[in-house]
Amino acid sequence: MSRWLERFRPYLMVAPAIIVFVLFFIYPIGYMIYLSFHEWDFISPDKQFVGLDNFAGLSEHPEFLKSLENTFVFTFFSVGITTVLALLLALWINRPTRFYGFVQGAVFSPHIISLVSIAMLWMWLMDPQYGLLNWGLEMFGLPQSQWLASPETALYSIILVAIWKSIGFNTLIIIAGLQSIPPHLYEAAALDQSSRFTSFAKITFPMISPTLFFLIIMNLIGSFQVFETIDIMTQGGPLQSTNTLVYYIYEYGFRFFQLGYASSAGVILLIVLSILTVLYFFLMSKRVHYQ
């Protein structure tokens, strides 16, 4: 009896977690792939097999293409700008001051506040009539913007919010990376009379580039899933200008009940995320090699 328990103990211990994972993560992925080859409206009893028709349909579907384009634009700008700004900010903040704890807290808090609150706060700031942002622009004599209200600027406004939310977190991680650089490297460089720029190019940047790589990939993965800000701030509008991949899946699944289309779009998201994940693990194994 006790031997029997001994043998099965590990299985009993991992079972609850594994059941949850299989039931709510692994199996649904399979089901989604299955659905992507079918046409179904959620109500009719049978699902019709349509092969790759859904994917073919998607490739000609302007709304989908627009959402894909938006997702890529969003990802490109939000990740690019966040990374560059966070790097600059990190280099600037990274010296021990009395305020470090405070700065850390202030910089970090957007990361733990609900996106709902953040989205609403920014909606208020971006209000074209009496929002603070336009008020500020006016004070400096600059032309006002329509922000979320115009198809031209809406996506960029969303990007701005995304940058604001993630920049603090990114900065802190880069700072952590900077602080793990052994100081004797800089001392050696100082003895060699290297300029500040050379020190950055030859020591700092190579030493934190693994951290940067990882941040970028994590940010990419996060960006492809953008949903909350869009749902709250623009609902994909105006004129589809902020429709993104996840929002598309959501709309086609829950508003229009085209589960085949929605699942196919999900599979495409899955493929993108898988590529990024593989890249992530590839870099991870590479980094182990460096050490």
Partner: peptide, 18 residues
């Protein structure tokens, strides 16, 4: 399997789970 789960965001599986 656990590590794979770690990489699956809810935004990917909400439809089938729904």
């Amino acid at each position: 399997l656990t590590m794979i789960t770690l990489m699956i965001p809810t935004q990917l599986i909400f439809l089938p789970v729904y």
